[in-house]
C-alpha cells in the first residue's frame, strides 16, 4: 500500500467520523426540537376532547384523552344559538382595522423619530415610550369616557358600539413606533444623504427607499398587532354593549355561567377561533422571518 492511499484512507475515515458526528448532532437537535413542539402543541388535545363530547364538564374520571364520539352539538349550538359568525366578522374587522392604521402611523412616526431633526425629539420619544408602561386596565375607564364623549364631536364615528370607537383608541402603540424607529435607524445613512442631495422630498425618500426595505419589519409588526387585537378582551368588553357589536373573546365569555359553565361549548368555540387565526398566520409566516427583519430590532 502506498503512502498516498494510506493518507486517503485516513482522510476518508476522518470525514466519515465527522459526518457521523454531524448526523448524531442533528438527530439530537431534532429530538430536542420535537420535544418542544410536543410541549407547545400537545396541550391542545385538552381542548379537542371536550369540544367533541356531549358532557358539559371538562374533567372526567377516568380521563378521556381523545373524543370517544364525534358529537357536533357544541358547534351546532354556537352556530345556531349565538351570534358566533357575527362576532367572528367583527373580530376580523377590528383586528384588521387596528393593524392597518397602526402600521401606517407607526412607520411614519418611526421614520420621523429615526431620520428627522426637530426640537424636543428626545423628550417626546421618551414620553411616548413611558406610556407603554401603564397597565392597560388603569386607562380603561378614562379612555371609555373619552370615547363616550367623542360621539358628538365625531358625528358618531367614534363612540360606543361603533367600529371607530372599537378600533381607533387601540391603534396607538408606542411599541410599534419604537420597533419601526429601531429598524429605520439601521438603514445605511448614505442612502438618505444621496437621495437628499438629489433633491428628493422626505415623502419620496420614505415611499421609494424606506418602505420597500422595511417590508419584512412591517409584516412582523403587522402580525404581532393583529394577534394582540385578536386576543384583546378588556377594551372590546367595555366599548361594545350590543350582542351584534361584540367580538369573539367577549362573546365567548358571555357563554360562561356564574357557577356552572358548559365547557364543551367553550372548548368548541376556542377551536373555531383557532382555525381562522392559524390560517392567517400560515399565510403570512413565509414573510415572518427574513434576515433583514433582524435589522429591524438592532440599535
Amino acid at each position: 500500500m502506498s503512502l498516498k492511499s494510506e493518507h486517503t484512507k485516513e482522510l476518508h475515515d476522518l470525514a466519515l467520523q465527522n459526518s457521523r458526528i454531524r448526523r448524531t448532532k442533528s438527530v439530537i437537535a431534532y429530538a430536542v426540537l420535537g420535544l418542544f413542539v410536543f410541549a407547545s402543541v400537545g396541550p391542545i388535545i385538552y381542548i379537542i376532547s371536550p369540544a367533541f363530547r356531549e358532557s358539559k364538564s371538562l374533567f372526567s374520571y377516568p380521563p378521556q384523552w381523545l373524543p370517544n364520539s364525534f358529537y357536533l352539538g357544541n358547534f351546532k349550538f354556537l352556530l345556531s344559538e349565538t351570534n358566533y359568525i357575527r362576532w367572528g366578522i367583527n373580530t376580523f374587522i377590528f383586528a384588521t382595522g387596528v393593524t392597518v392604521i397602526a402600521l401606517i402611523i407607526d412607520t411614519l412616526a418611526g421614520y420621523a423619530f429615526a431620520r428627522m431633526e426637530f426640537p424636543g425629539k428626545k423628550i417626546i420619544f421618551g414620553l411616548v415610550l413611558a406610556t407603554l408602561m401603564v397597565p392597560t386596565a388603569a386607562l380603561l375607564a378614562p379612555t371609555y369616557l373619552l370615547v363616550r364623549n367623542l360621539d358628538d364631536w365625531t358625528f358618531g364615528l367614534i363612540g360606543l358600539d361603533t367600529y371607530g370607537g372599537l378600533i381607533i383608541p387601540m391603534t396607538v402603540s408606542p411599541l410599534g413606533v419604537f420597533m419601526m424607529r429601531q429598524f429605520i435607524e439601521t438603514l445605511p445613512k448614505g442612502l438618505f444623504e444621496a437621495a437628499r442631495i438629489d433633491g428628493a422630498s422626505e415623502w419620496r425618500i420614505f415611499t421609494r427607499i424606506v418602505l420597500p426595505l422595511m417590508k419584512p419589519a412591517v409584516v412582523v409588526l403587522g402580525i404581532f398587532v393583529f394577534m394582540m387585537q385578536w386576543a384583546n378582551f378588556l377594551w372590546p368588553l367595555v366599548i361594545t354593549t350590543k350582542d351584534e357589536t361584540r367580538v369573539l373573546t367577549v362573546g365567548i365569555a358571555t357563554l360562561q355561567g356564574q357557577f356552572v359553565t358548559n365547557w364543551g361549548v367553550i372548548a368548541a368555540a376556542t377551536l373555531m377561533t383557532l382555525a381562522p387565526i392559524t390560517l392567517v398566520f400560515l399565510f403570512f409566516q413565509r414573510w415572518f422571518v427574513q434576515a433583514s427583519m433582524a435589522g429591524a430590532l438592532k440599535q
Partner: peptide, 25 residues
C-alpha cells in the same frame, strides 16, 4: 327591552365604565 349579556369575567371593569358614563344600562 334591549338585553346585553355581560360576562362575569371582569364584570366590575365593565360596570365601572358603564356607570361612569351618562348612559348606563
Amino acid at each position: 327591552v334591549e338585553l346585553t349579556q355581560v360576562p362575569w369575567d371582569q364584570l366590575e371593569a365593565l360596570y365601572t365604565a358603564n356607570f361612569a358614563s351618562d348612559t348606563p344600562y
